[in-house]
Design a protein around this nucleic acid. Structure first.
Lengths: 289, 289
DNA sequence: GCCCTGTCATACCCGGTAGGTATCACTGAG
DNA sequence: CTCAGTGATACCTACCGGGTATGACAGGGC
């Protein structure tokens, strides 16, 4: 077979074109001129013996093979950048004064704060524990951070995060609560059901992005915790969140347990091919909490 | 940051050197001369700002960062070749006469033959079923085939295969049997324990490779089923295998159930990032068997 | 109908760099 | 001391990745 592995450069170019569906914009994004980009994609198609794009009067669109290469190419690019980043970090570690390990732990900002505290404390007590760098990240970013090598391990929350492609261990299961403005009639209830909370005319359910896109609905689009807290306090929305988030509630908030919400399971997750001793130690500590 | 993704070429070079631990042999394997390879590795180290290899009098050895890059680089190279192969296959499919999907299913030769029969039969009856190419492979090769894109989906057998990094669904659980020469005293028993089978002086336990290497032990090294069958028939060895393998036993063999062997679970497994409709259909069929 | 605009492809040129050959520097073995 | 075998250096060539200028073609407005 003529070609075994595609060059990173080719993948970068193709992914740019496939995402923009426009050679000019893709070239601009790549910091190059359009003609060499056109030529590179042509060469790629020739090399693969496959047509990737359909060029029509107004821009381009993907063929079936193009769709496949877009997915697979993104994964391969992530793997290549992960290799660079993790090697860099490993090198920076074993440079001065012997191998000093360091792990980057991605956590959703303010998610399961108490668990994180306990984990860090318990792990620090281990003999030859690595240094842990906590990398706070937005909702659902952990998967991307693990894939592209910015993080080595993450605390994830099923069913919000997808554990596909990672190894993981369960740490904690908790129920969910509805967070309402303190003055609202429903705030007086002892418990609520999902149906009751989802269907309040004056309190549309807050929405946050799952893997980059917001689910449809009338409620406000939430980007960070403070935003959410404020909108609830103002009586504009209601949110369904894990029980442990009680920690950051304001006085103007009331939490009501939900009877039928799916439980949230916190996992510690890491790339399946990891072989780091430091990581193994952290996982062991976490599962023994 | 100066570098985001390493070039495939750099990874290929480094992996070759790291595996050979010798620039000359690595260059030969890569089909190039030694000096440009030396230079390429130096440039890579400079680009990453990290020392990857320790050059000493007799060959080279890896630093900590080098070990990391060897692991991560292999994964990235696999991803890049998988991208090429899967794109090729997708292109060959949607070329003549509309999108004609095709899935490559990796199975351990003669492993769970009956299950495979049923699966193929049931799937063929589905409306717009894709064409299934069955790729028979050696023991434990399925993981590699999925990772480097030669296969799209595989039948795996826990605990022999590792499901790490793949999505999977359980299909079948079965016990294990000891296969003995028909004339052997133990062949008269109704059941056996692992300890009894492992400790027969004149019948050392057959060994087969787990991820490329043979576990230590006195028994013969097995590479394929026929070899194994013959050695058992000749009274040279005993094997522990899943129950469904009774299908291929010879008249000179006797199967005795094991009371305490771990159960073997057959899974259907696929790369976690797969998004193919044809694959989804096959998985659905498999889980409904 | 015309031209003008916006798309991707082609033609041509230049410079960087990947790769080759020849050779050096070092070190351990005999 | 020499020799064999290691990786590093010096130097050259040729390829090819990238830039600029321009072409081919299709749609839309006047």
């Amino acid at each position: 077979m003529a070609v075994d592995a595609l060059e990173t450069r080719e993948l970068r170019y193709f992914v740019a074109v496939a995402e923009e569906l426009h050679f000019g914009r893709a070239a601009e994004r790549l910091g190059m001129a359009q003609p060499p980009l056109s030529r590179a994609i042509q060469q790629l198609e020739r090399r693969l013996g496959v047509s990737l794009l359909v060029r029509n009067r107004r821009g381009v669109c993907l063929t079936g093979a193009g769709e496949v290469l877009l997915h697979e190419g993104r994964a391969a690019l992530d793997a290549a950048t992960a290799a660079a980043r993790r090697t860099r970090r490993a090198g920076a570690a074993d440079g001065p004064g012997g191998p000093r390990n360091r792990l980057v732990l991605a956590v959703k900002a303010a998610g399961s704060h108490e668990l994180l505290q306990k984990l860090l404390h318990a792990y620090a007590a281990e003999p030859d524990a690595a240094e842990i760098e906590v990398l706070p990240c937005g909702i659902c970013e952990q998967e991307e951070l693990l894939r592209n090598g910015r993080a080595d391990v993450a605390l994830m929350h099923a069913p919000f995060n997808s554990l596909a492609g990672f190894d993981s261990e369960e740490l904690l299961t908790e129920g969910q609560i509805a967070v309402l403005p303190a003055g609202h009639p429903l705030a007086a209830r002892r418990t609520l059901s999902l149906a009751e909370v989802s269907d309040v005319p004056d309190l549309p359910l807050a929405r946050w992005p799952r893997h980059g896109i917001f689910p449809p609905g009338p409620g406000p689009e939430i980007r960070d915790q403070t935003q959410l807290a404020q909108l609830i306090a103002l009586g504009r929305t209601v949110a369904i969140i894990p029980d442990s988030a009680r920690a950051w509630l304001w006085a103007e908030h009331t939490a009501v347990p939900l009877t039928d919400a799916p439980p949230v399971v916190t996992h510690i997750a890491w790339p399946a091919h990891s072989r780091s001793l430091a990581l193994a130690g952290l996982i062991r500590t976490a599962t023994q909490l």
